[in-house]
Amino acid sequence: MIGIVSYGTYIPRFRIRVDEIARIWNEDANAIKQSLGIFEKSVPDVDEDTATMAVEASREALARAKIDPKKIGAIFVGSESHPYAVKPTATIVGEALGVGNYYFCADLEFACKAATAGIQICHAMVKSGMIDYGLAIGSDVAQAKPGDALEYAAGAGAVAILIGKDPIAVIEATVSYTSDTPDFWRRDLQPYPSHGGRFTGSPAYFRHIVNAVRKLMEDHGYTAKDFDYAVFHQPNAKFPQRVASMLGFSEEKIAEGLLVRVIGNTYSASSLMGLCSILDKAKPGQRILLASFGSGAGSDAFAIYVTEKILDFPRNAQVWEKAKNGVYIDYGLYLKNRRMIR
């Protein structure tokens, strides 16, 4: 049995309210909250970035797993905000964790689904016997142009998933659906991403997630009833709610993992943060559907089955606790923390 042996999360301490951003741009905050279903988002400190958050999440995962860091055979960091264009974030993480020098290592980029691709790679490497443990990390300080609609949603956070044998949650099956769909992109040397507005919906988010999940169900004989929880990528609160109803999942099944309302879209960490908040509560014998989405575009769907091992697994501090424990800042401090003013 191969799957999730441990997990760790990191949400930076600061929050900015949608009302505060709307005040600067003279927009209707209530209309934005209504349309996105987002009320506030997480903001990193001035000295935090994708690498520092990846280290913090990974340290939590390793402390919970109680394994020697040198047993980790692979580290993959998925992000669209790597601090370097050339020089892997994963090397910084490996060094900070004390993994040693003999490990497979690479940075991954597939918009918001790079980290679930990392899980698939680690899963395959453990299954093939190449490694004992693999660490897949999703970490992002989401970039948004001031004044763009993305600014209300682009949050920050990191999740580290340790893959190995004898897990707390087995990865029973995984399926990916990929196509060349330019719904959201960032050209080389550009500081902020661009997007196709409404085009990010039907041809991108919905098509890819629905096809990945339906194929997973067809190939492996699941129906929506077989899952106790479902978690989807969360660019806002509306998209995951709609895709859940399209696939036959009730509101209750996605409620636990819907963190976007209070921390925004944490990009590579988004769907995994939801998964971790579900694992915080999950009981042995429960099954979770996870479907990420990465613009460009693709979706990775997983069937995850919780084992008895979760009963002895340390799960504090819980994700929701971290999400709700924020310090509010104004737009000026937000710009300073994001290093937009120096």
């Binding site: 301490r13 600061f14 400190d45 000295d47 935090e48 970035d49 690498a51 520092t52 280290v55 913090e56 340290r59 601090p83 370097y84 910084i92 900070a96 424990n325 310090v327 509010y328 800042i329 401090l333």
Partner: peptide
């Protein structure tokens, strides 16, 4: 684990250990 600084706009980024308060997160003001 935090950023210490950077050499320059196109130079290397310095990372290292800093400290953060453990308790009273809620009481703190930004």
């Amino acid at each position: 684990f935090r950023r210490y600084g950077e050499e320059s706009e196109d130079g290397i980024i310095y990372y290292g250990t800093k400290f953060v308060p453990i308790e009273s997160d809620k009481k703190q003001k930004a």
